[in-house]
């Protein structure tokens, strides 16, 4: 009986200890996911910007815009779990309606741009992406 109690207590204790550990690991994964999505967005706009400024050949303009549009569309899922950290401010979830509206706009503009670029290539021009509008409000500075 005592052994059983002891085992149960042990399991309960372990579960109690393990739960926060598992949660922490999960938070980190969520933050990594977000950061990797943002890095992909960042790398694609860097490529597209260099193409728009004619620093590099623009043959793959449509392809990079397509990657950007699809990654932007996936970003919403990455920001759905409320995990404050990384560079994400708590206001993302406090003002989720505004945050999601801004993200939707990015997806919309990038998707329309990608569709146009698929038909016309680089001649379609750079869509009016707005990264800064969101970063100014919802991105924490490195301390």
């Amino acid at each position: 009986m005592n052994r059983l109690l002891g085992t149960l207590t042990g399991i309960a204790l372990m579960a109690g200890l393990a739960a926060p550990m598992a949660a922490r690991a999960e938070d980190k994964d969520v933050i990594d996911y977000r950061q990797n999505v943002m890095k992909t967005l960042g790398s694609q706009v860097a490529i597209l910007g260099a193409m728009a400024q004619k620093k590099i050949p623009n043959d793959n303009f449509a392809a990079h815009l397509q990657i950007l549009a699809e990654t932007a569309a996936s970003a919403k899922a990455a920001f759905t779990p409320k995990v404050v950290g990384g560079k994400s401010k708590a206001t993302i979830w406090d003002n989720s309606a505004d945050f999601n509206k801004k993200l939707d706009e990015l997806v919309q503009v990038a998707t329309a741009g990608a569709t146009a670029a698929k038909a016309q290539g680089a001649a379609a021009g750079m869509p009016r992406l707005t990264c800064k509008g969101c970063h100014d409000v919802y991105r924490e500075e490195t301390k």
């Binding site: 960042g42 706009v45 860097a46 597209l48 910007g49 260099a50």
Partner: peptide, 9 residues
């Protein structure tokens, strides 16, 4: 990292 900046940065 190469100090070249960017159109969106």
């Amino acid at each position: 990292s190469s100090g070249s900046g960017g159109m969106f940065t």
